[in-house]
Amino acid sequence: MRFSGTLLTALVISLSAAALPGARAQDSDTPVTPASGEQGLAEWEGIHAVFAHPRCANCHVEDDQPRWSGESYGKTRVHAFNVRRGEDGFGNAGLRCSTCHSEENSAVLHGPPGAHAWHLAPAEMVWFDKSSAEICAQIKDPERNGGRSLEEVANHVRDDALVAWGWNPGPGREPAPGSAEETFAAIERWAAAGAPCPEE
């Protein structure tokens, strides 16, 4: 079988999400008032600024190629070297994500960034090139967010090592705005405000 070791990793990751069959988004539980709606949308704007930031969106792609952007990379482009998602999201035989991306950022300018379990987000969790409304709908949809409640989404943002990388992306890269803790809190407030999504 191909990728026996990494397939296992992928299974563990997907099982951890699937192990929560009762988990559902909370938006239907919280009444949305006009005031909380406005406040909720404002919270969403802050969350969206993080999710749509290249440090996050470049690896939340719909196709199977991560993106590169930033100074000295020109306009946003597909990751060089024909890097692909692969069957498990961790790359292909011979060119795994871990071939270049280790547990920590390379200290060298233009060297590969790194964090634990470097890989592409599943294709259904697409943020790259998507509107604020589309990202918002995806985040709330358990079919497309790994079966997570918004509480679990918030926890994931706060606790996951690869997510945390977005705020500590290594030399020469602009970090995502805010921090993991702030984004966690914003998601909590947004959920509490009824998790409203923008029109577009």
Binding site: W68, S72, Y73, G74, A80, F81, N82, H110
Partner: peptide, 15 residues
């Protein structure tokens, strides 16, 4: 010079 390494001064790859 603006370019510095193979990320911005690349050459044809096998694919």
């Amino acid at each position: 010079v603006e370019q510095s390494n193979f990320h911005d001064y690349d050459a044809m790859r096998i694919f």
